[in-house]
Amino acid sequence: MTHPSSALDDTIHQRVRLGILAVLSESRRADFAYLQEVLEVTAGNLSQHLAILEDAGHIQIAKAFEDKRPRTWVTVTRKGRTALAAEVATMRALLDGIGSGQRP
């Protein structure tokens, strides 16, 4: 029998990456500055997390010029949505198991 925590996805269970997917799953897309403000991270830190999620196929990044200014838009993929739902369900199951007296 495997421990419930073994079902957690290492790519997304990190706090900031989970937050990025949570924001994107509610929206059509969000830009870099918005994510940085909501998640309260530095630009460098956010870039690293976005690169990890993009490499895993959970998000798509599009760079554009709007009003002569560069703007980075981020969109969650279907794979990212599925992974987020699975991750949240796993964490809830983990907490439910602890609540019902199973060993964590």
Partner: peptide
Amino acid sequence: ARESLAFSEYARKRAR
């Protein structure tokens, strides 16, 4: 796990 879930819920709510 609790902290991560709470943070993701906060992020969802903020986006909404």
